[in-house]
Design a protein around this nucleic acid. Structure first.
Length: 852
RNA sequence: GCGGGCAUGGCGGAACUGGUAGACGCGCUGGAUUUAGGUUCCAGUGAUGCAAGUCGUGGGGGUUCAAAUCCCUCUGCCCGCACCA
């Protein structure tokens, strides 16, 4: 029997699917759409770096399995693909190689599209677009202006995060451990006038919305919740000794009588103001700035302060004053940038107070402790208890004291309850030339004026000159010179482009009508959204997924889309890893230069033995990368797809091994053998009449596989679905002598069930089995409940919790009869050793436990 | 520091709402087939023991007729946030 020729077969079936247009998205008005439920399956679209890697392979295989599975189940499926095509790598390539970023990007897209097509993905390629297509960013500019008109966008001079390597500003979310998310460079602070999306306007909604996302990983919801960082507290005013007012924010108003100082952030306007007349303070502030930006090791940073000499008057006692300090640990970006310090109940305040010898008064003592002797030492007490040393609050519980203080300060007109968020507005200006131009014009007379709709799109220049300092768009005077739409005078374009995360925050909505004349075709968006299953890496838990939720909510508020949440189901897949090799010199060695012999890694070139390191995420720096195209060339796409789904649960990291890949390839051949060596099979559609035990066993295995694989795929347990298919293949091999119609049913079922995972092989087998219609056009099989539940069960018998025997009995047999049978089992009698059972527990159809 | 997760054979992992631990795959051992190897097929594969059996899901304790699963506690690893008042 001939080997299955994956290469030849895969090419042929891909052409056949395309010729028949099988993966075209059903039209909204087609007769199908009325009856069938919709299913929008989406994998995070790739950046066109040039070639696909194993991570893409895993991601797109999972998505394709779901899409094909749902399609077979009769859903209307939308499964599109596009390119997140703006961004810095294109600029770097342009600078290094002298090509245009546009050409570089589109060439990469062409190459990667070819690679993705070789994987046999069931994608509707007619909907493909790249975010750098003028047609796409034109719509994005319209969307930006819609947001501007609605007041969702504002321009503000602010301290911003400046990435000195990428030469652009970054949003807060894009600063990880004080470094740029892409470049890894230590971020500097700069004061610039920039565009912001008012994401904080939606902070509460974005937080509350998390509770509705029941098909999202708990972990991602928690990360977003923490990022939004809601805290409820009180904002109130101190009057200072110079009669100025100072706003502070606290979540612990109950501890107000434990206050021993007031502290300002070094960046607080009052501190800045005071520094003008106080050189020492100015020097202190400069020092704080240094520490903050130079190194991110905040944990080691010592609490430092500077006494301004000002006093703050206690709101409940005019005769009580607190020193006003400038302290390096107070953040300007949170609350009001000023706090009152209560050392006994806040660790930072305590460290600070001990250093500067400020009073420490415990005002909350644990239940049962004596307020006179309770001492916090060097460990701030943050637990619950009763108020003490707090005048009218004494004896109250913490929550009551909080309310009492809030009520009194509100009544006095110097404070109010507020909610604070950690979330900051989203800075979207980028000083980069390869992005979506911000459609705004700056006029000396009229100020900032939006580009009128009829003048859109603001296209990027044909040629971008990288041989300039700073942003090439800013240096391109011809491009940036324009006339003011308002007064007709000379004006300049905004030369910043939008953060590329804006591009990826609404592409899934655009996929529902990629050619629409407006950003959104409401009918299409309302039919297809939300995305039913979104799949991608966990690294986007905050950045992309939070921005996309925000943009969708903003569009929802403007009536552009019905849904508020874009992704009903989210799945975060694990990474693809490989073991690492180092030679005697400590240099990394790539897997294709290595052979494994008797558990040892040997370099092919010089037979040198290598050190085998732990399995780590495939990366160029560790050289432990396996190229998908090499595997596809050797074994075919179905083998690599099967590997990506086998063994390891999809959310965990998977390790690529050659042995595992060979195992997958052997299974491909095995399925082909089982399906193509069809001697003795009944013809297509022959009725099943056999009633012999072996045939019934095989039929049961077949229908159990249908039920199990369906259930596992619904739950995205691809590895378990794979295991079930192995089990079915084993049952088919064991049932070689069974009735021909029964064997046909089993083999055809195996082919249909494996089709979402190995679609080319399935088509080839299906044809060999004598079918004219394609698998891709064949409905998902249904199991016969009569065959998945047998009328006999094997029950185990335990004596004192230890298994001693098992016996077969009719399903749902009378418990009394089961008990009698159980006690008659030889193993049970031996274990009892003549003792009389005290108690017998019968769990129907499962187990009997005899207690002796 | 705070928050979250994980721990099962040589390896990846399975085990529904507590009910026969180790499905399935990889690897390994033995055998058969083949002109040679890969291939294919059969048998075996948690530990220990001749056997009956005993032990066994990171360690310790608990609840229960029954615990990988529930509770307490300790250890180790991974992830997120990190001076957020």
């Amino acid at each position: 029997m001939a080997r299955y020729n994956a290469k030849e077969s895969e090419r042929r079936w891909q052409a056949e699917w395309e010729a028949r247009g099988l993966f075209k998205t059903p039209a909204l008005d087609s007769s199908r759409s009325g009856a069938a439920p919709k299913c929008y399956v989406l994998e995070m679209f790739p950046y066109p770096s040039g070639r696909i890697h194993m991570g893409h392979t895993r991601n797109y295989t999972m998505g394709d399995v779901i899409a094909r599975f749902r399609r077979a189940q009769g859903y209307n499926v939308l499964h599109p693909m596009g390119w997140d095509a703006f961004g810095l790598p294109a600029e770097n390539a342009a600078r290094d190689k002298g090509v245009s970023p546009r050409d570089w990007t589109y060439e990469n897209i062409a190459h990667m599209r070819g690679q993705l097509k070789m994987m046999g993905l069931s994608i509707d390629w007619s909907r493909e677009f790249a975010t750098c297509d003028v047609a796409y960013y034109h719509q994005q500019q319209k969307l930006f202006l819609d947001f501007y008109k609605a007041g969702f966008v504002h321009r503000q001079e602010a301290d911003v995060n400046w990435d000195p390597v990428d030469m652009t500003v970054l949003a807060n979310e894009q600063v990880i451990d004080g470094r740029g998310w892409r470049s890894g460079a230590v971020v500097e602070r700069r004061k610039l006038s920039q565009w912001f999306f008012r994401i904080t306007q939606f902070a509460e909604e974005l937080l509350a919305g998390l509770d509705t996302l029941d098909r999202w990983p708990e972990k991602v919801r928690l990360m977003q919740k923490n990022w939004i960082g809601k805290s409820e507290g009180l904002r109130f005013q101190f009057t200072l000794s110079n009669a100025q007012k100072l706003d502070v924010f606290t979540t612990r108003p109950d501890t107000l009588f434990g206050a021993s100082f007031v502290a300002l952030s070094p960046e607080h306007p009052l501190a800045q103001d005071l520094a003008k007349k106080d050189e020492k303070l100015a020097a202190f502030i400069a020092e704080c700035r240094h520490v903050g930006t130079a190194e991110a090791d905040i944990e080691k940073a010592e609490k430092k302060g500077y006494d301004t000499g000002l006093k703050a008057i206690h709101p409940f006692d005019e005769s009580w004053t607190l020193p006003v300090m400038v302290a390096n640990f107070v953040l300007m970006g949170y609350g009001t940038g000023a706090i009152f310090g209560c050392p006994a109940h806040d660790q930072r305040d305590l460290d600070f107070a001990r250093k500067y010898a400020l009073p420490v008064t415990a005002v909350v003592v644990p239940e049962g402790a004596d307020p006179k002797t309770f001492d916090v030492g060097n460990q701030a007490y943050t637990g619950s208890g009763r108020l003490a040393n707090s005048r009218f609050l004494d004896g109250m519980a913490v929550d009551d004291a909080k309310a009492e203080v809030a009520n009194r300060l509100e009544a006095a007109g110097i404070g109010g309850r507020t909610v604070n968020y950690r979330l900051r507005d989203w800075l979207v200006s980028r000083q980069r030339p390869w992005g979506c131009p911000i459609p705004m014009i700056h006029c000396a007379k009229c100020g900032v004026v939006p580009v009128p709709a009829e003048q859109l799109p603001v296209k990027l220049p044909e040629k971008i000159n990288f041989a300039v300092k700073g942003n090439p768009l800013d240096a391109d005077t011809a491009w940036k010179s324009t006339t003011c739409p308002s007064c007709g005078g000379a004006a300049t374009r905004d030369t910043d482009t939008l953060d590329t995360f804006v591009d990826s925050s609404w592409y899934f909505t655009r996929f529902t009508a990629p050619a629409a004349a407006d950003p959104v075709d409401k009918a299409a968006a309302d039919y297809w959204l939300p995305v039913d299953q979104y799949i991608g890496g966990i690294e986007h838990a905050i950045l992309h997924l939070l921005y996309a939720r925000y943009i969708t909510r903003a569009m929802h508020r403007l009536g552009m889309v019905k849904v508020a949440e874009p992704f009903a189901g989210l799945f975060t897949q694990g990474m693809v890893c490989h073991e690492t090799y180092k030679d005697a010199k400590g240099d990394w060695v790539a897997p294709d230069e290595v052979v494994k012999e008797a558990g040892k890694a040997i370099r092919i070139a010089d037979k040198a033995e290598l050190t085998v390191g732990p399995s780590e995420k495939m990366s160029k720096s560790r050289k432990n990368v396996i190229a998908p195209e090499a595997i596809i060339a050797d074994y075919g796409a179905d083998t690599i797809r099967w590997f990506m789904l086998s063994d390891t649960p999809p959310e965990r990291d998977i390790e690529w091994t050659d042995a595992g890949a060979e195992g997958c390839w052997r299974f491909v051949q095995r399925v082909w053998r089982l399906a193509s060596e069809s001697e003795g099979l009944s013809p297509v559609g022959a009725p099943i009449t056999a009633q012999d035990a072996a045939s019934l066993d095989l039929r049961r295995a077949t229908h159990k596989a249908i039920a199990a694989v369906t259930e596992h795929l619904e739950a995205l347990r691809f590895n378990s679905a794979v295991a079930q298919l192995y089990t079915l293949a084993n049952a088919i091999a064991a049932g070689e002598t069974c009735d021909g119609a029964v064997r046909r049913e089993a083999i055809e079922t195996m082919v249909l069930l494996s089709a979402p995972m190995m679609p080319h092989l399935a088509e080839e087998c299906w044809q060999a089995l004598g079918h004219a219609r394609l698998v891709a056009e064949t409905p998902w099989p249904k199991h016969d409940p009569k065959l998945t539940q047998s009328d006999q069960v094997v029950m185990a018998v335990q004596v004192n919790g230890k298994r001693r025997a098992e016996f077969a009995v009719a399903k749902n047999a009378d418990p009394k009869a089961v008990e009698k049978l159980a006690l008659e089992q030889e193993g049970v009698i031996r274990a009892l050793g003549g003792k009389t059972p005290k108690k017998v527990i019968v769990v129907p159809n499962r187990i009997v436990n005899v207690v002796a």
